[in-house]
């Protein structure tokens, strides 16, 4: 399959990148690792007039430890670099656990954190070749006006399939975004839109530049559990991240988040209330599993049935709580 034609923009600084995105407002797509955008462009899901290769902007690469003020990860930092970072592994283990499950080792050499955070939503009816989609009359998300997953509805159920965002949500991460008006920062929990088409609170001319992990979440124990068909390369079909702040055997603070089950990754509401002050046990872990399963709204957007994915998120949430407590 060949890529549709486009002009390639290769800025060297962030200012230059922001100016180019403003100049080609809405007509440019950003590429970093290329592992999400390029296959989609081959399937003609995107046919932008301009592709902006962000990798020349060196200032957006790397992990910066700011003692007393958390850790800042540049959007261009590869997932391999995060996986091998001693500080991430030691202070933010839930992110380490999630990163090392993304795709395959080679894809992690290519893929970036910014790309994983901004990953396009996925669906059986969407991630297909132009010929395939055309033969089915297209779909709501691209080129069509009906949803094959929930016929009659006007809502796109394409599933957010990033592995790192649930871990980042558990850590209370913030994203830094550059646009024509300068830099802005937003909590990751307010960055996503639960709509397979809208996806993100991100204007077409804006660029995600950094992810900030707060000092307050340093040292939280964590676990990430992922359901997929094969043990490598695959996107998650359900994912649960659990982060626990422990003090002498009891949970002092906690967050639980799920991914690959809804059009956006979500923090599981009231999970903290169930966990805080408790010594983690099978019984409490079971309750967290129930809450996570209730937050999940899987539909037939992937190769596994929604029933199975909902059941597995319950099992995986339980396992994640027990493992985070044991780690």
């Amino acid at each position: 399959m060949s890529l549709p034609s486009f002009q390639l923009l290769r800025p060297k600084t962030l200012d230059e990148a922001v100016a180019l995105m403003a100049k080609h407002d809405g007509e440019a797509k950003i590429v970093a690792g290329g592992t999400d955008l390029l296959p989609s462009m081959k399937q003609k899901l995107f046919t932008p007039a301009y592709v902006l290769d962000l990798r020349g902007v060196g200032e957006l690469r790397g992990i910066r430890n700011m003692p007393g003020n958390g850790v800042e990860i540049g959007a261009l930092t590869t997932l391999t670099a995060i996986e091998h970072s001693a500080i991430i592994r030691k202070d933010y283990p839930v992110l380490y656990e999630a990163v090392k499950t993304v795709a395959s080792p080679v894809l992690r050499n290519m893929g970036t954190l910014g790309g994983n955070v901004c990953l396009d939503t996925r669906c059986l009816w969407y991630n297909q070749s132009l010929l395939w989609r055309k033969s089915c009359g297209f779909c709501l998300k691209k080129d069509g006006n009906l949803c094959h997953v929930a016929p009659g509805g006007n809502f796109c159920w394409a599933t957010f399939s990033g592995d790192t965002p649930p871990a980042l949500l558990c850590l209370g991460a913030e994203v830094e975004i550059a646009g024509p008006e300068g830099l802005r920062r937003t909590p990751l929990s307010e960055f996503y839109v639960n709509d397979g088409i809208v996806r993100l609170h991100l204007a077409p001319n804006e660029i995600v530049t950094r992810v900030h992990l707060p000092e307050a979440a340093a040292g939280w124990r964590g676990s990430y559990q992922k359901l997929r068909v094969r043990g490598s390369i695959d996107y998650p079909l359900a994912g649960v991240a659990v982060a626990l702040k422990m003090k002498s055997g009891r949970v002092e603070d906690a967050r639980v988040a799920i991914t690959a089950l809804n059009p956006a990754p979500f923090l599981v509401k009231d999970a903290d209330a169930q966990l805080i002050g408790m010594v983690p046990s099978e019984e409490i872990a079971e309750r967290i599993g129930e809450l996570a399963a209730r937050t999940a709204k899987p539909l037939t957007t992937s190769a596994l049935t929604p029933e199975y994915r909902r059941e597995m998120v319950r099992v995986f949430a339980k396992r994640a709580v027990m493992q985070a407590a044991a780690n």
């Binding site: 390639l8 290329g34 592992t35 390029l38 395959s104 080679v106 390369i233």
Partner: peptide
């Protein structure tokens, strides 16, 4: 992974790399 090549000694899937980059 059938298209894997090394770029600066690190393996990449060359089907998802733009030659100009």
């Amino acid at each position: 992974g059938a298209c894997t090549v090394l770029i600066d000694d690190v393996p990449h899937y060359s089907c998802s790399v733009l030659t100009h980059t």
